Amino acid sequence: MTPIPTGRLFGTDTGTDLVLTREFRAPIEDVWASLTEPDRTARWYGRWEGKAAPGSRIRVQMAYEAEAPWSELRIDACEPPRRLALSARDESGSWRLELLLTSHGGRTGLRFVQHLDTVEGLGEIGPGWEYYLDRLVASRDGTAMPSFDDYYPAQRDYFAHLRPTPV
Score class of each variant (00 low, 15 high):
F112A: 07
E91D: 15
W70V: 13
G109A: 11
M145Q: 09
E130V: 14
I125F: 09
R156C: 12
R140Y: 09
D150K: 00
L100H: 06
G123N: 02
L133H: 06
D90I: 05
Q155M: 13
R83T: 15
S139L: 10
E124N: 12
Y152M: 09
E130C: 05
A85T: 12
R83I: 14
A144W: 00
G121M: 06
R96V: 15
L97N: 04
R96K: 13
P80Y: 04
E124P: 14
F148V: 01
L100A: 07
P80F: 05
P69V: 15
L99Y: 00
E124D: 09
L86P: 10
M145G: 11
E124K: 14
V113L: 11
C78I: 11
W70F: 13
L99S: 07
D157K: 04
I75C: 00
L116S: 13
Y131W: 11
A85R: 01
P81Y: 00
G105S: 12
A68W: 07
L110W: 04
G142N: 00
L84C: 07
A144E: 01
R82F: 13
S94R: 04
L73E: 11
I125S: 06
S147L: 06
L133W: 02
S87Q: 06
T143S: 09
I75S: 02
F112M: 14
H104S: 14
R89G: 13
S139P: 08
G105E: 13
S103V: 07
P80W: 05
W95E: 08
D141C: 09
E98P: 03
F148E: 11
W95Y: 02
R156Y: 09
